[in-house]
Nucleic acid binder design. Structure first.
Lengths: 341, 341
DNA sequence: ACAGATTATGTAAAGGTTTACACAGCATAG
DNA sequence: CTATGCTGTGTAAACCTTTACATAATCTGT
């Protein structure tokens, strides 16, 4: 029953007294094989404990049952929940997940490219906003790929994520409803599509409320805590203070809160702050952070489903799947000071 | 240069005007091949952009270059940093990482067992404290495996983690130094080895300070936030209050803090709390949590190194690698109330 | 100068699977 | 009764490597 070496298809064939071709067919095209034979084969499989050797299968088929997931940083708090969605969907279709992180290092990207070239992965999920590979190789031979969490900047790759414009709109609408009119946007970026979409939502919200945008309170940022802190410093330097900070993500919001607290201000009494993502920390902040929730597990699930579809059909049914973001109201937003005294 | 189908070893051989055997040797045993030949082969490889087909290689060699990492929950905040260490070490040795999570579901475990049986993974890193597979299969044919983060309960598997006893000792010593003598232990467990080791450290600390242990303030728990909250409730019910809570992990500590705050107490003024792990949230709590840091990336790195050693040597040099935990002093610990008034 | 050792390379088998093609048996239609 | 088609199965090739074994060429020591 449990030999030292795993049972092969040949062992099964011998026991079932059929050819290996029939065994293979009994497994993969059961309708092509007579009932009685199928029964014999199944019994033989049970006896031997046979599982098909994935290596041999992949070699023969010319494609593996692994999906490569590349993220810039595995430690990103958004990563794990998306990964759960990806993994569940993949596993239920017989696929496994291979993991890599680039740390924004091109060299790393190339190493993962090798996984792709050597046929170890049939498809690619890109967590980073850009193709982490050199440009020449990139166009050459990329397997079916899907971008996730952040639209892919430099390649025509289908994308699954949240509706950034709508999400940002929910945040800005909340702030406006509370009475804010001078609202800073922290985390503007030309290279990160998700961020620029969030800015679009921000501007649409201002516009709808008849507030003319003020570029002096639109701050650049790369989504790090430090960039949030820096933005606060800049605003105080320039003396162009808003009453609320709409941040491009939660990390930035954390940075903003740190910056404001360091100057002795209270949140939300003196300034309101919103984030985006709803990372696990958000609820533990003081005050807890009002933010926009990404349906992370759902994103992962949809992305993997789309990729698997690509793998079988070849053509993507849709080029972009946008999920609905939800406003999570906590304690970092209140009416601006002038309304309360 | 970039054909539709990837270059094979045969293409390289043809261009270099040698046999495929020589190409293979030039790649894997360069010292066995003449300098001039090696040069030709390398040029041919550069021209074709050849990468060896991992499937064919694994099939021939009878072992893959993938390591399966199984965790009970990918979302665990401890997971990602360990994963980084695992991944870096694996990649630098040409291995890739395959990911699975069981959600404590035996059925899931079996599915991952298939990955192992079908030769897709050469080794196993177990993040969960128990072998997630059925018992019969378990003994049958398990590949080289290493437990990580939590000792493996039901199998003689080498383990890499933190020195739980020493870590717990650091926490209890801090509390005692601050003047606490009634210190609760929250998160006792018979099945989780890491937790029981931490309790050992707790008791050693009490003993060294000449404090006789009081079982009424040793509370069971499974390491969840809820279990921490529950423990507080129980203590208030029984009216056997400590002045400090030493918690088996940060999640539990968070639960304890929630429970105490809900009853209107201040931390650390009324009660001190310590955690274990130093999860990313710990620093964002109010008050920020004094805890024991797990060197997570280092744990991952050592675990993978040990596994790779196992894969080549067969015999593990050591059966347990314990890394040094560090005390991280933040704001959730202070002298007990009676000392301060 | 020659036996024997050493070095460099080639030939071919093996690893486990899938599948095109061939074939046998049998039913159906003419 | 023969031609035709269908169904179920088997044979063998192919996928791409690695490596044991064989062979050819060169070197070493006498």
């Amino acid at each position: 029953m449990s030999n030292s070496t795993p049972a092969t298809i040949e062992d099964v064939a011998r026991i079932a007294n059929v050819s290996i071709a029939t065994v293979s067919r009994a497994i993969h095209m059961p309708e092509k094989v007579a009932n009685s034979t199928r029964l014999k084969v199944n019994q033989a499989i049970a006896i031997t404990g046979y599982t098909t050797n994935a290596m041999a299968r992949s070699l023969r088929l010319g494609r593996s049952n692994m999906i490569l997931v590349v993220a810039p940083d595995i430690g990103d708090p958004n990563f794990s929940n998306i990964l759960i969605g990806l993994e569940n969907e993949a596993r239920s279709h017989g696929y496994g997940i291979l993991i890599g992180h680039t740390q924004n290092d091109a060299q790393r990207g190339l190493e993962y490219l090798k996984f792709l070239n050597s046929n170890q992965a049939a498809g690619l999920i890109l967590f980073t906003g850009i193709l982490p590979f050199g440009h020449q190789t990139m166009t050459a031979r990329l397997p079916p790929s899907v971008g996730v969490f952040e639209p892919v900047f430099n390649g025509g790759i289908p994308y699954v994520g949240v509706d950034d414009v709508a999400g940002a709109r929910k945040a800005i609408d909340l702030l406006i409803t509370e009475g804010h009119r001078r609202i800073a946007f922290v985390g503007d970026s030309r290279t990160r599509l998700a961020y620029s979409r969030r800015r679009t939502g921000y501007e649409a919200g201002l516009d709808a409320a008849g507030i003319s945008p003020d570029l002096r309170i639109v701050l650049e940022g790369d989504g790090t805590i430090e960039s949030g802190r820096l933005a606060v410093e800049q605003l105080f330097m320039r003396d162009t203070l808003p009453t609320a900070f709409m941040c491009v993500n939660d990390q930035t919001a954390i940075g903003v809160m740190i910056g404001l607290k360091a100057r002795g201000y209270d949140i939300p009494e003196d300034f309101s702050v919103t984030g985006f993502d709803d990372v696990p920390q958000a609820v533990f902040m003081t005050p807890s952070l009002t933010t926009i929730r990404q349906p992370r597990t759902a994103i992962g699930k949809h992305a993997m489903a789309l990729l698997l579809e690509l793998l079988s059909d070849g053509e993507p049914a849709e080029t972009e799947i946008l999920l609905r973001p939800d406003l999570v109201v906590r304690n970092s937003v209140a009416a601006p000071a002038r309304f309360r005294r």
